[in-house]
């Protein structure tokens, strides 16, 4: 499978990474090399093999359903690029 320039633009949009047109050809080449490398996996017979999602087979731990943390909005907002009262501020989303 090869990654063409159209696909590079589509992935960049999905990943929300702005790309200039000048960056696209080099990136297509690099992604193709990486995808070409990982294609080796198709040689492996994985029929019936369960996907391995975590080295730790922990059950999710339960805790009391109570408020255990919070109440410090200003700490949470301290690193915000832009804020307004107790809210993060972003460019207008709805016209």
């Amino acid at each position: 499978m090869s990654v063409d320039e159209k696909t590079v633009r589509r992935i960049a949009t999905l990943a929300r990474i702005g790309l200039s047109e000048a960056e696209v050809p080099a990136l297509a080449k690099e992604l193709n090399a990486i995808i070409g490398f990982v294609e080796q996996l198709s040689e492996v017979d994985t029929t019936g093999v369960q996907p391995f999602t975590s080295p730790v087979e922990n059950k999710m731990r339960r805790r009391e359903d109570v408020v255990s943390d919070g109440g410090y909005a200003q700490d949470v907002l301290a690193n915000a690029p832009e804020k307004d009262d107790e809210y993060f501020a972003v460019p207008k989303v709805v016209d």
């Binding site: 929300r16 990474i17 690193n79 972003v90 460019p91 989303v93």
Partner: peptide
């Protein structure tokens, strides 16, 4: 949005793409 260096954009999607 919540931390780090933001780059301005014409709308929020553009802000995300420029920031990243």
């Amino acid at each position: 949005v919540r931390y780090g260096a933001r780059q301005a954009g014409v709308d929020i999607d553009d802000m995300y793409a420029n920031t990243r």
